[in-house]
Amino acid sequence: MAGRVFAEAIVAYDKKDDVDAVYENPYPENTIEHDLFRKNLIDNIQWHLEDIIRDPDIDPKEALVIKRRIDKSNQDRTDLVERIDSYFLTKYSDICPKADATINTESPAWAIDRLSILKLKIHNMNLATKRTDTSEETRSQCRQKLAVLLEQDMDLSGAIDTLLKDIEEGRKYMKVYKQMKMYNDPNLNPVLLDKKNK
């Protein structure tokens, strides 16, 4: 399901192709599909902001504004991943793990986060294979990279499906740790704390 919703979000972004545009989420709020659509949209807009900020001729003031947007986007992304994990925690709350159940190295939502980024890599690498303003050598390299990304997509999608099935059947259990990013907290970031105390 996540892959399908991510594909829909990518198409929605491409129709406007504008980091400042408003994008309508076609799914009802408080559904997993709504959160997945929003997740990929956040990633897609940030992807393009990262392109823009790398312009060597960018005005430093504009670059700072974009950097602040990227920082906020990263926090929004983290908050949304934790919200998606809450969905899975609720969904599997009645599952009783087996005595020998193990924990995964990452939660379902963080794996889905990686899948969202991977879908964007595939989409943009595919576009790069069709550009007419690059050399055939560059396009050939992009085709090779695209093949690897598509293989990664199959592997990661399969691994996510396996993880969810293992949780459903009690072979794995979920344990979620909040990110607790310190640099966004005015009480923990030393620079912000110093300014606050002056």
Rank of each mutant, 00 (worst) to 15 (best):
Pro60Asn: 00
Lys181Ser: 11
Leu188Glu: 11
Asp14Met: 08
Glu50Ala: 03
Ser116Pro: 13
His34Arg: 07
Leu149Pro: 01
Val65His: 12
Pro190Asp: 04
Lys178His: 15
Ile53Cys: 04
Ile95Asp: 11
Lys172Met: 10
Glu82Met: 12
Phe6Tyr: 12
Met174Ile: 07
Tyr183Pro: 00
Asp85Tyr: 01
Thr90His: 15
Leu49Lys: 06
Asp35Val: 01
Asp113Met: 10
Lys175Asn: 13
Val148Asp: 14
Ile84Arg: 00
Ile10Lys: 09
Glu169Lys: 06
Asp76Gln: 08
Gln152His: 08
Thr134Ala: 12
Asp113Gln: 14
His123Glu: 11
Lys175Val: 10
Met182Ile: 10
Asn184Trp: 11
Asp18Ile: 00
Met174Tyr: 02
Ile45Leu: 02
Asp79Thr: 09
Trp110Met: 02
Phe88Pro: 09
Asn124Gly: 11
Val176Ala: 07
Pro97Leu: 02
Tyr27Arg: 03
Val19Asp: 03
Leu41Ala: 02
Asn104Tyr: 08
Lys119Asn: 13
Ala63Asn: 01
Lys61Arg: 04
Pro60Ala: 01
Gln179Met: 12
Val22Phe: 12
Leu120His: 04
Thr138Gly: 03
Val148Trp: 11
Ala111Met: 12
Leu163Gly: 00
Arg69Ser: 08
Leu192Tyr: 14
Met174Leu: 07
Asp161Cys: 06
Val11Tyr: 14
Glu137Phe: 12
Asn189Leu: 02
Ser116Lys: 13
Ile112Tyr: 02
Gln75Tyr: 05
Leu163Ser: 01
Thr78Gln: 09
Leu127Ser: 09
Asp153Gly: 00
Thr90Trp: 15
Asn197Leu: 12
Lys172Trp: 02
Asp43Ser: 11
Gln75Asp: 05
Cys142Ser: 10
Ile53Gly: 05
Asp153Thr: 00
Pro97Phe: 03
Asp133Gln: 14
Glu168Asp: 15
Arg143Ala: 13
Gly3Leu: 07
Lys172Thr: 09
Val65Pro: 03
Val11Ala: 15
Ala2Ser: 10
Phe88Lys: 12
Asp35Tyr: 01
Leu156Thr: 09
Met182His: 07
Lys91Glu: 11
Leu150Phe: 01
Asn74His: 05
Asn189Gly: 07
Arg131Thr: 08
Ile84Gln: 02
Lys195Met: 14
Met125Ser: 08
Lys175Gly: 09
Tyr87Trp: 14
Gln141His: 10
Glu33Trp: 09
Ser86Cys: 06
Asp113Tyr: 14
Ala109Glu: 02
Ala147Glu: 12
Asp100Cys: 06
Arg54Cys: 03
Gln152Arg: 08
Trp110Asn: 04
Gln75Thr: 04
Pro186Cys: 03
Asp57Thr: 15
Val176Asn: 03
Leu149Asp: 03
Gly3Asp: 11
Lys196Asp: 05
Val19Glu: 03
Pro190Ile: 05
Ala159Ile: 00
Pro26Gly: 02
Lys145Arg: 10
Arg114Ile: 06
Arg131His: 08
Asp35Ser: 05
Ala63Met: 04
Arg143Ile: 05
Asp79Asn: 13
Asp43Gly: 08
Leu115Gln: 15
Val11Ser: 15
Ala159Leu: 02
Ala147Gly: 09
Asp55Val: 00
Lys121Gln: 13
Gln179Thr: 14
Ala21Asp: 10
Ala7His: 06
Tyr173Thr: 07
Ile10Ala: 04
Asn30Asp: 08
Asn187Ala: 08
Asp55Gln: 01
Arg38Ala: 11
Leu150Met: 09
Val176Ile: 12
Arg171Ala: 05
Asp185Asn: 06
Arg114Leu: 10
His48Ala: 02
Ile53His: 05
Thr129His: 07
Tyr92Asn: 11
Asp35Pro: 00
Leu36Met: 13
